[in-house]
Amino acid sequence: MIYIQNISKTYQSGIIQVKALQNINLTIKKGEFTAIVGPSGSGKTTLLNLIGGLDSPSHGIIKIDQTDITSLPENDLIDFRLHHIGFVFQSYNLIPVLTAKENVEFLMLLQKKEEDQRNERTIQLLKAVGLENQIHKKPNEMSGGQQQRVAVARALASKPDFILADEPTANLDSSSAENLLDIMFKLNQKEKMTFIFSTHDSRVIAKAQRIITIDDGQIINDYYR
């Protein structure tokens, strides 16, 4: 469960203060397939970064289960992300020198998981995203869609509590985007994995169970389908 209590985020841009988020209150339950939508600059990515502990709020508290991530020291926060949060980025951000298998395995290595356990999970995840035949390929040898599927497998590898996906389909062609969404939706349905998307993509919105609309740093709409 993610509790967001009265979050605000203000940036200093030169002499101007930009209010990226204002008084956001939100609870996201386990297993939700949530889309945060809104125009560019509305604060979607900022909210996602705050939930992921990549940035700290100017005011307010974010609790993930019982942990107040806004008060964690930097190293503890990095460790918290490693064990509890999975990320899928718009531009995939795979480690270019590692193969698909090594990229997926990487976070489990950081978690110091046993080799057998790592191998089994890596193969299982790459199968789940339909890339069992591409395991030895490096990112530059794969298409954008394939890279993003590896990124999804990587995000799941560490068995996180939830996955934050920032515009995951933005750089993909239509069929790759559909395919990726199907995979993520199935994982959500089958494993009750919580997904939180920041997106403009109507295909993501169409699949989302909950849609939160943000504009000018404020939640203007929040509903379940």
Binding site: L54, I78, L82, H83, F89, L110
Partner: peptide, 15 residues
């Protein structure tokens, strides 16, 4: 950029 991604994913800066 890459270091930023690694830190985001959970790799300690010391590593």
């Amino acid at each position: 950029f890459e270091f930023g991604v690694l830190i985001a994913l959970g790799m300690a800066k010391s590593k």
